[in-house]
Design a protein around this nucleic acid. Structure first.
Lengths: 153, 153
DNA sequence: CTCCTTGCAAATTGTTTGCATACCT
DNA sequence: AGGTATGCAAACAATTTGCAAGGAG
């Protein structure tokens, strides 16, 4: 049910813009849907799509991701480790809400997801104060995880 | 006065670790200090340092930035435009406090700084709940700026 | 039938690394 | 002197682009 909706939305938006509905584009989106908990690199996605469609090229995956991102169907996030990661747009997740909060350890680079949502008020405040229309946010905390804190001393 | 402090701190930390105090390292830090409002790429920094020290190599700038970051003297931030940006550590800025809040327009990629600090409570909460020691945070809002909102329709 | 899209390979871009030389301490 | 740093060039890795061939509308 969720499954259908994003796919249909993609088809509609493609048609609107005179672009084509291709198997590659649908597959990239569906891999992201099926892995809605993960932060996937283009390479990760490429490998998974390849299982269904071995002939796909990596460049096509990049192009599809760019397109899906422009259409606001997928989110991007970067942990500054040299590659951008993608996930299904938070609006389409089954889960409660967006969960773009991460604790990133500066010693071991571990990423700990942290679910909490205290920013809705702030978003409204921003819209009123600046006229900027907020679609999504991303919050990262940098520091030292419990384990690295121990080793520290 | 501010000027002196970070530089001295760098010297101390280098000596502590048996590393050398070099003109290149000091210059990279001082360029970041002098441009404390900007988000600078390694290339930006390289060009500015080159004015004082034309023989410096880009690789040295990268190595110095890595080192300064490890020592928590500079902050890193990425706007997902393919290059990491640096600025003087928030602890050493003259300004009120950290200001790592940005509104990023998904159409025109404009970055609007947004100063506000509502996250201190949340940081304490995290430390208690998870044992993760927070050093810094970074908050980005993605959306559409006022101008792009107008063009939208 | 007409563009849009794809796969491939080559090109780019940001960043890192190897190595001989130069420099701190 | 002895190890650390540097500059340069080559190496890398993620992403983008050009182009001829294939596919959707």
């Amino acid at each position: 049910m969720e499954q259908k909706e994003v796919q249909e939305l993609l088809k509609d938006r493609l048609k609107e813009k005179g672009l084509k509905v291709t198997r590659q584009r649908l597959l990239v989106l569906s891999v992201l849907e099926e892995n809605s908990g993960r932060h996937m690199t283009a390479e990760d996605i490429y490998e998974l799509v390849s299982e269904d469609y071995p002939d796909i090229g990596l460049a096509t995956v990049y192009r599809a991701l760019q397109l899906l991102w422009d259409m606001q169907l997928v989110d991007r996030i970067s942990f500054d480790d040299g590659c951008v990661r993608y996930e299904i747009g938070h609006l389409f997740k089954g889960e409660a809400k967006h969960n773009h909060h991460h604790l990133i350890c500066r010693k071991c680079n571990k990423v700990i997801p942290f679910g909490d949502d205290l920013l809705d008020d702030l978003e409204h405040h921003i819209e009123e104060a600046t006229g900027f229309h907020v679609l999504d946010h991303e919050l990262k905390f940098f520091g030292l995880c419990r384990e690295c804190m121990k080793k520290e001393k």
